[in-house]
């Protein structure tokens, strides 16, 4: 894994082509979002279908702070994280008491309502036109190049990974995984499951907000179309297929779902089909034990083949 990160850094340092830089930045951002989502989906086992909405809240917060007040990037990123987390609490606290599938419904509904607010509250968000000319990140006189944002993203990614790793080794992580595995058992051990679910939800939206702030200052432009339901679903897919609950799995998921369609040079439309097929086949292969069935199928064929052969030989003898 360390090798992957090193490779990432080396590639980021070497590449010059602005298209590749953009791709690598997007992969970093999605890796970030997927790792944040992993806390809720992978570790705690909850279906959050609005990660892109929290990403958007972070981006809008940073965009507004940067354009209206000229706030420096460290203020932007922290404010974006906090605002996004507050939204996460507002959505999570009442819903996480309910059965699992309600969360998926509420998060989808929340994302849609948020989008409509983004489009209609023109005085704040500039409506469908979005917020333009967001100043980039600068430290002193140094203005970040596009490439620098990859490193900015990587630093935040490392922070998320560190936090996740530390938490997984603590009482909090054990409680979250107990909730994922067996809520009844978790309750019987004195774990306040609503509290921990809300905590996981808040952490995930916190980091998603950070990603939003980086993205806003990188692209210098945010609009309601930057954060749509398809992105949330794709992120969910990255987490589940990459290996939900593992530390680095979501990064692999992000890499595959960002780069493969790009390498295959899919048009935008085909990309969604690709993501859809990956979601279907990936889950079926994982949960339906297709591999086991296929293996058994060939094994049976093979053994019958061997039997026939050896039978022939015996016949010959």
């Amino acid at each position: 894994m360390l090798a992957l990160l090193l490779a990432w850094i080396v590639v980021a340092a070497v590449i010059k082509n602005s298209y590749f830089i953009h791709m690598l930045f997007m992969a970093t951002t999605y890796a970030l979002l997927a790792c944040a989502l992993n806390i809720v989906v992978g570790i705690t086992g909850l279906a959050n279908m609005s990660q892109a909405a929290f990403f958007g809240i972070g981006a809008y917060t940073a965009a507004l702070l940067a354009t209206k007040f000229g706030a420096p990037f460290y203020i932007n990123i922290i404010a974006a994280a906090v605002v996004s987390m507050l939204f996460g609490l507002a959505v999570g606290a009442p819903t996480l008491r309910l059965k699992g599938f309600y969360l998926s419904l509420v998060t989808i509904g929340f994302a849609q309502v948020l989008r409509i607010i983004e489009i209609n509250w023109v005085s704040l968000t500039n409506g469908p036109m979005g917020i333009t000319a967001i100043p980039g990140v600068s430290i002193g006189r140094y203005l970040f190049s596009k490439k620098a944002y990859i490193f900015y993203g990587l630093v935040v990614l490392l922070i998320i990974l560190y936090v996740t790793k530390r938490l997984m080794a603590s009482k909090i992580g054990r409680a979250l995984s107990a909730i994922k595995n067996d809520e009844v058992a978790a309750k019987s051990l004195g774990i306040n499951i609503t509290y921990y679910k809300v905590l996981a939800f808040a952490m995930s939206s916190f980091f998603a907000g950070m990603a939003g702030s980086i993205y806003a200052q990188y692209t210098t432009f945010v609009s309601p179309d930057s954060f749509v339901q398809n992105d949330s679903t794709t992120l969910l897919c990255m987490v589940i297929l990459g290996g939900s609950g593992t530390l680095f799995g979501p990064i692999f998921g992000a890499i595959v779902l960002i780069f493969v369609p790009e390498i295959l040079r899919f048009a935008d439309m085909y990309r969604l089909i690709f993501v859809g097929v990956v979601m279907i086949v990936g889950i079926l292969a994982k949960e339906g034990q297709w591999f086991a069935h296929v293996q058994k199928f060939f094994k049976d064929r093979l053994t019958s083949l061997i039997r026939v052969k050896s039978g022939n030989r015996e016949g010959a003898v």
Binding site: N230, I240, M279, K286, E287
Partner: peptide, 14 residues
């Protein structure tokens, strides 16, 4: 159930 939900979203995309 989360797996089934994701598969259904995959079909929706497709």
């Amino acid at each position: 159930k989360l797996s089934a939900v994701i598969v259904s979203m995959g079909f929706s995309f497709v």
